[in-house]
Amino acid sequence: MIGSLLTVNVTGCATATPDPEKTTEEAPVVEYGDLSEALSTAVPRIVGVEDLGRSGNGAGYRLDATLVLDSAEPFTGDELDAAAEAIWRTLPWEPNAIALVAGVDGADGDGPEAVDLRAAAADLSPMGHTDVGQGGVSLFDMDERYGEWTAPE
């Protein structure tokens, strides 16, 4: 659905057959807190969050998320600021980057329609950003804008 907005191409991957002689530990479950509620409270036009993911990026962990919106209007700087701060204050682990794409379900089942976050991100200095996906952004240096990260209580 909306998750198809963020496309990642992977090349050169090989699959390995697990060795039945070896036991493996299960990957730890990643917690996100009550992120969906925090985001819809901060920005009422966010009606859901999909495709939550956490990935290591060499310097820590990046949050990946798709914001499901109620309209295709571009995000304002204030809306993106409120969403980023809600994520920063809600996650039970410190993200060193927040990668977001946004979209709405297309009319008449046309598929998802991307909502551009890039212009809004330009208003969020001193926090930095790069472009990702179709109109998405990866935000970094959140502590420069919101202060030091602390675990939610």
Rank of each mutant, 00 (worst) to 15 (best):
A14W: 08
T17C: 04
D19K: 05
E21W: 01
E21N: 13
E26P: 05
A27T: 09
P28S: 13
V30I: 14
V30Q: 09
Y32Q: 05
Y32C: 08
D34L: 03
S36L: 00
T41S: 14
A42D: 13
V43G: 08
R45G: 06
V47A: 12
G48K: 04
D51P: 00
D51M: 08
G53Q: 11
G53Y: 02
R54D: 04
R54W: 00
R62K: 13
D64F: 07
A65N: 09
T66E: 07
L67V: 07
V68H: 01
V68G: 00
L69N: 01
P74K: 09
T76R: 06
G77K: 09
E79H: 02
A82T: 02
A83N: 10
R89F: 05
L91V: 10
P92W: 06
P95V: 05
N96C: 04
N96Y: 06
L100Q: 07
D105S: 12
G106Y: 10
G106I: 11
G109E: 09
G111K: 03
G111P: 00
E113A: 11
E113Y: 01
A114N: 11
D116M: 12
D116S: 09
R118L: 04
S125H: 10
D131A: 15
D131K: 13
Q134A: 15
Q134V: 12
V137K: 05
V137Q: 03
R145T: 05
